[in-house]
Design a protein around this nucleic acid. Structure first.
Length: 329
DNA sequence: AATATCCGCAACCGCTCCGAC
DNA sequence: CGTCGGAGCGGTTGCGGATAT
């Protein structure tokens, strides 16, 4: 037995909102405030679903919303947060005053995801594409007796597969979901994320609420000595290895984590990113973390993207034969 | 100038969460 | 403790404008 619909879909207006409808919502909220949205259409004289009214208010009409374009700082923040917690748009949006989860989600899907891919960074795992593909190579050499993940392919971004792989393997649709469907509430899952080194298996716990393969993957990074990101010792202790974990709470209480990734050297443009890459590949390693962990105070000069690119350079140097030229970006 | 294609954004859908009863 | 229903969330769709051909 399914849930009854919140309203009679056939008798309510759908689609774009008119200025008159917006005015009615605004007037209603001004007089009555928000809450009990199912009653709003009737009371405000609108032929709309209450849910639709709520969305219109929260995503567009709220007076505290910003409607201008995202700043480079906001961009950086979104990337960092997405790398840390995956596609938890509402949590990310809470860190961006005046932005809604829908704003952030759309901006990610239309701009940032493509931007990262263009830079050779897999937007799902936040790893360099070459590393993801070489990881995939390792994984595809099954059987892997230590991996408890039911679907290793879930780590691989669909876009990445489409753009870089022969069409012989495709990510099963809803693979993210498959991880979740196999997850009982409160159950702890252990994963080994394979890397080319594959010498430092690490285990992490997945919060039961997690529905994102990207976050799963990145959670592993947070606790991993192989991490490309600039975790602080605090960060490692802040990410609890337990099944009941509230990311919202985490984000509110652990500014030192994400914000320590790159507090002083926000990457401004794609051109900057490439120039950074050029610098680091020129072995100007001042302030660059070692691969096997964070190297103290120098970390604060090392950006999130720097870490990714350094990691990639290191990988290429160590395993030139593994990286086919076609993987170049 | 006309048409096709691409892109961004607003809105919708279906699901889960959570509090009230 | 189970059910109900509102609220919230993430994924997806579709429209309309911009750009390319």
């Amino acid at each position: 037995m399914g849930r009854p619909p919140c309203c009679d879909k056939s008798n309510v207006k759908r689609g774009l909102w008119t200025p008159e409808e917006d005015a009615k919502i605004l007037a209603y909220v001004a007089n009555h405030g928000t809450g009990n949205w199912t009653l709003v259409p009737k009371k405000a004289g609108l032929n709309r679903c209450g849910k639709s009214c709520r969305l219109r208010w929260t995503n567009y009409l709220r007076p505290d919303l910003k409607h201008d374009s995202f700043t480079p700082q906001e961009e950086e923040l979104i990337i960092n947060l997405h790398g840390a917690i995956g596609s938890r748009w509402s949590l990310i949006a809470r860190r961006l005053p005046g932005r809604t989860d829908n704003d952030v989600k759309n901006y990610w899907n239309t701009k940032l995801r493509k931007k990262l891919m263009k830079m050779g960074i897999d937007p799902v795992t936040h790893k360099p594409v070459s590393q993801v593909l070489s990881d995939l190579g390792s994984i595809s050499g099954f059987p892997n007796t230590t991996t408890t993940t039911t679907n290793p392919m879930a780590y691989v971004n669909k876009d990445l597969m489409m753009s870089n792989m022969a069409p012989t393997k495709t990510e099963p649709s809803g693979s993210n979901k498959s991880l979740v469907e196999n997850t009982q509430e409160g159950q702890v899952h252990s994963y080994q994320v394979l890397t080319t080194e594959n010498v430092q298996p690490h285990v992490f716990s997945e919060a039961a609420s997690s529905t994102s393969s990207s976050s799963s993957s990145n959670l592993s990074h947070l606790g991993s000595p192989q991490s490309y990101s600039c975790q602080t010792p605090q960060a490692q202790t802040l990410v609890p290895h337990c099944s009941s974990f509230d990311w919202s709470e985490f984000l509110h209480t652990s500014d030192s984590f994400v914000w320590s990734l790159n507090p002083s050297s926000l990457v401004q443009t794609e051109a900057d990113l490439f120039s950074i890459n050029a610098k680091t590949s020129g072995h100007d390693k001042q302030g660059v973390a070692s691969v096997d962990g964070c190297s103290g105070a120098s970390m604060e000069y090392h950006s999130f993207v720097d870490g990714i690119l350094d990691r990639d350079n290191e990988l290429r140097a160590a395993f030139p034969e593994l990286l086919d030229a076609s993987f170049d970006y």
